[in-house]
Design a protein around this nucleic acid. Structure first.
Lengths: 159, 159
DNA sequence: CCGATTATATTGCATATGCAAGTGGGCGCA
DNA sequence: TGCGCCCACTTGCATATGCAATATAATCGG
């Protein structure tokens, strides 16, 4: 084949496979959904200055009362390095505080401050609004189906 | 109630609602799933120096052959500002190029370069591996269910 | 008890993402 | 025609995210 023809084939093949890929890719779908749902949750929380990601981290911390960073990272399937930065922001806002772990000097325990707990309680009703909108966006059946499959997939991960 | 008691109540309530929220939040689930699936796709693509997000953008561009940035942004539910930076990276790598849109001087058309098309074709078999692993991670039924609900939710978005 | 290995967290670097603001080109209507 | 408004992008700023490398502490074998 001559070079000009090869070049055209390359592009034509890319176009064909791209159309197929676009119609199937699971990653594209989960990322796109993540973006659209994120904005649903961001909006009601904005007045509090609290981002959904931060709220997710606070949820994990609050659920335990007090926890190691590594525990929190495991709970929410987040790399420790990412968690580290998010907790930085939460600390700057004085919504969480860190204590030494008496059992291990490498580790640090995090917990909500009083201000953090108060903020969290304020955030809950706003979260409920967002959650309701997300349920609508997925359709009631879709939301339940999604929750089930996500929980299965996330719990199967790790060992 | 005395102040000390109020403080304890605050934290107790936060803990109770946090446990409930952790068990229900759809956003947490979609973001966690997005993170775990992203790493599944990142690994096989790494040797090419291509990130999954970039591949998603190239897929949208390649599927059209040539498209306005705003069209691409709509196709993949991405803010124009975000797309702008991703396309910057693709241009630095000379995987895509921009042309003026003869119909509108504000707009710009993007398309794959020859190198970009070649890379894209190389990426496809690696993407298939990743897609297969993602399907496994979600379970075969889960993967289909997810695809269906994501497509519905994403198409219902916009008007 | 020491040295090698492992575990916990942080930091440097690069990309991903969105909002707000800015730039400049179309477009309708008086 | 020209002014005001809308549209397509880009940029500044801040957060989100992960990998690789680092510092420090625990732990396990010998």
């Amino acid at each position: 084949m001559a070079a000009p023809k090869k070049r055209r084939d390359l592009r034509e093949q890319a176009q064909r496979t791209a159309r197929q890929t676009a119609g199937e890719c699971l990653l594209f779908r989960v990322r796109a959904l993540s973006r659209t749902l994120t904005s649903l949750y961001e909006e009601p929380l904005r007045p509090l200055g609290l981002k959904p990601t931060q709220m997710n981290v606070m949820t994990a911390i609050a659920a335990r009362g007090e926890a190691r960073l590594s525990e929190v990272a495991d709970m929410i399937a987040l790399e420790p390095s990412s968690l580290s930065r998010i907790v930085d922001v939460l600390r700057r806002n004085e919504w969480v505080e860190m204590l030494p772990d008496p059992a291990d000097e490498r580790a640090r325990l995090v917990r909500l401050t009083d201000a953090g707990a108060a903020l969290y309680n304020e955030a809950i009703p706003l979260w409920r609004k967002a959650q309701a909108r997300a349920r609508e966006a997925l359709g009631p059946d879709g939301a339940e189906a999604f929750k089930t499959l996500a929980d299965q997939s996330l719990s199967r991960r790790a060992p």
